[in-house]
Nucleic acid binder design. Structure first.
Length: 657
RNA sequence: GCGGGUGUAGCUCAGUUGGAUAGAGCGUUGGCCUCCGAAGCCAAAGGCCGCUGGUUCGACUCCAGCCACUCGCGCCA
């Protein structure tokens, strides 16, 4: 099938090389420099800065010379030197023949570049006992999209939903349930979440610790501010600048802690603040024994699990299944599938053996009761990887080491991806470093596909939004709009509504570069205008509708009739699509696919709307069957590409909306 | 304090790996439905690309130093 754009670049580069007597090698290098020109200046642009050197001419003269030499080349309809650039317009025949037939074939954009290779993708991976909150959408849709993209490129894909089904949080749920759980609701996922949230709050030893230390820290900070103020008053010259800076940063810290604004005097009411913190401290002191006991209880539950105690295991199994059922309900709604649903518990039996392997190489040491890995080249201040707690239980890292080794044995992967939030970069750099130190060369094939946080959601402030809730809301908004449409018959309404509502949310996430953070806002996730899923779906539906009205694409078409600027824009957008897929896979960046199909949708919308004013520019143009046939073929290519691209993202494309 | 990330239009974000006059969406202003689908199209306004220096014919892009925000930094995952 090939990538048309790459072929165009190559043919331009080869043409230049052969006419200037340059080697194939330089031709190849040249191809890499070719880009797209400014709007209205053709299809390809070759910057001549480096060529100028080898030709011994100033860049504009080199461009002139090269342009002259290409003037009669059959592949190029127009060649123009513009300053140091050569702008080339492709011959229509070349462009249309390379793009349209290929783009009409189902699976356009895919390739076999990954044939014989295996990628393991660890994604979604929620914790049992915790709710599936909105932010879980990120790992879920990014991982699923990367899976589909790789599959389209010929890779064998193993998608693993690696549940957090082992660990202290499970102890919190189990012991919490004994206290607050409604025995009638043992299988109610929402109830389990309530219990977990409550149990977690009542065993929050970190918060108690912080509250206990708060008055002391606050007093210190106040003293520092006072001292800094005095220092500033006494300072002069260079010293003064420094003193100002340090005071400013201390004041800012204080403002944040006190929760006061820019204008307020930082020291005003400090006594009352201290008194308040002191009161909280006293309360925390009283609550401390019970909180520590609850925490201990949860830890002990994990201990019992790790020792294989039957009743604990039975309870664990039951809660686990309840959670999974709830997760699967939501995955089904989003069309997410996994090759394997497993979890940390898979490795409970091999953890001792895993720790033993680490002990042999690179070795471990006991530090403050915990067992840490001896790594060379550790920078000071960097926390050492830890494989066992002071209780003798294992940690996340221990289990991930076991899992990574297991995955390599099972799949002999060429890539192993962990689609996990960027917060955990340290964990993954430790994981990979330990694996490497154990002698596993394949550690280099492992990548942390980090993504940014979703801000504005905090469990503590109770502002957590459930993923399901967002999907529901979006679907109901889609329904409101769809029922007003006379284009869509009752039989297909539900399907379209789901596709649009869920699609908008999924697409909204996959539009941003995965690395960047964003803030959750209802009006953002529920956006249907502008560059959103409904926009692309709309273009697709229009294409379907025109194809239907036109009676489909004729058997024989003369594509050379596609000469409108609007049509060329669509052709170029289609030509870029396969390359976007390859890059999305190599850069692990699904947003490249999102943006590529937005480009197709947008150029198509402009093209089709141009036909509203001017009947001669319509696809279903009257009185010219040959032209109509060519345009139908192009609109079919658009239809096929949009459907494929949306599919890769996990968004369905209704035929009407 | 140490390490990572981010800083581009009022807001949300792209920027093809160093190339021409830095681009979209939202919002604002103006225009386009006797309709091949207005969830759309066309146009306008809006920019010291965080700051300063360096490398280069050329820097939003690379390097150094600052500033701001943010995440992480031992027994959670």
């Amino acid at each position: 099938m090939g990538a048309p754009l790459a072929a165009f670049r190559q043919s331009l580069a080869s043409a230049v090389a052969s006419r200037q007597g340059l080697s194939e090698e330089t031709a190849h290098a040249l191809a890499g420099q070719i880009r797209e020109p400014e709007a209205g200046r053709g299809d390809l642009a070759l910057p001549c800065f480096q060529l100028a050197k080898s030709l011994g001419l100033p860049p504009p003269a080199a461009a002139q010379k090269i342009a002259e030499s290409l003037k009669d080349h059959p592949d190029f309809a127009q060649v123009e030197a513009a300053g140091p650039y050569v702008n080339v317009t492709l011959a229509t025949a070349l462009l249309v023949d390379a793009v349209v037939p290929a783009a009409r074939v189902p699976g356009f954009g895919g390739s076999d570049s990954g044939a014989g290779k295996t990628v393991v993708i660890d994604f979604s991976s929620p914790n049992i006992a915790k709710p599936l909150a909105f932010h879980h959408i990120r790992s879920t849709v990014i991982g699923a999209a990367l899976g589909r993209i790789h599959r389209a490129l010929g890779w064998k894909v193993v998608g693993i939903n690696y549940l957090g089904d082992w660990g202290k949080q499970f102890g919190l749920l189990a012991t919490g349930f004994q206290r607050y759980g409604d025995p009638q609701k043992r299988a109610d996922a929402k109830h389990l979440v309530e219990v977990y949230v409550k149990a977690n709050a009542e065993a929050d030893v970190d918060k108690v610790k912080a509250t206990l230390e708060a008055p002391k820290l606050a007093a210190e900070l106040l003293a520092q501010v006072t001292a800094a103020q005095a220092a500033l008053a006494a300072a002069s010259g260079d010293e003064k600048k420094k003193a100002e800076k340090s005071l400013k940063s201390l004041e800012k810290k204080l403002r944040v802690q006190r929760g006061i604004g820019e204008e307020a005097d930082v020291l005003a009411g400090a006594d009352a603040w201290l008194a308040e913190l002191e009161a909280k401290r006293a309360a925390a002191e009283l609550a401390r024994p019970s909180i520590e006991a609850r925490d201990q209880e949860a830890r002990m539950f994990l201990k019992r699990l790790e020792e294989g105690e039957a009743t604990a295991l039975a309870e664990w199994k039951e809660f686990r299944e309840t959670s999974i059922r709830e997760f699967e309900r939501i995955y089904a709604k989003m069309g997410i599938e996994f090759t394997s649903l497993e979890g940390e518990s898979r490795y409970t039996n091999v953890l001792e053996a895993t720790v033993d392997k680490v002990r042999q190489k690179p070795g471990t040491a006991i530090d403050q009761g915990a067992e840490i890995v001896k790594l060379e080249g550790q920078k000071k201040g960097e926390p050492p990887p830890m494989v066992k707690t002071k209780d003798g239980t294992t940690l996340y890292l221990t289990r991930d080491i076991a899992a990574a080794m297991d995955r390599y044995e099972r799949f002999h992967f060429d890539k192993s991806l962990y689609v996990v939030a960027a917060d955990q970069s340290l964990h993954f750099s430790q994981l990979f470093a330990v694996l490497k130190a154990m002698g596993h060369e394949w550690a280099e094939k492992c990548t942390h596909v980090a993504f940014g946080r979703v801000h504005g959601m905090s469990t503590r402030r109770g502002s957590v939004v459930f993923l399901d809730e967002v999907l529901e809301e979006s679907v109901s908004k889609a329904r409101e709009i769809c029922v007003q449409s006379d284009r869509i018959d009752a039989a297909n309404l539900d399907e379209a509504v789901e596709a649009i509502g869920v699609g908008a949310v999924v697409f909204g996430d996959l539009k941003n570069l995965r690395g960047s953070d964003y803030t959750f806002k209802w009006e953002e996730v529920l956006k249907f205008d502008g560059h959103t899923a409904p926009y692309v779906q709309f273009a697709h539906a229009r294409a379907c509708s025109i194809l239907q009205k036109g009676g489909g694409v004729p058997a024989a078409v003369e594509l050379r009739h596609l000469v409108l600027p609007e049509e060329r824009a669509v052709l170029m957008a289609l030509a870029r699509y396969p390359e976007a897929l390859e890059r999305a896979a190599s850069e692990l960046e699904p947003s490249l696919v999102t943006r590529a199909i937005l480009d197709v949708a947008q150029t198509t919308a402009s093209w089709l709307t141009a036909g509203n004013q001017d009947r001669s520019r319509r696809v279903l143009v009257e009185g010219d069957e040959a032209l109509k046939g060519a345009r139908l073929a192009l609109i079919d290519a658009v239809r096929n590409t949009l459907q494929h691209g949306l599919g890769l993202l996990g968004v369905r494309a209704p035929r009407a909306m």
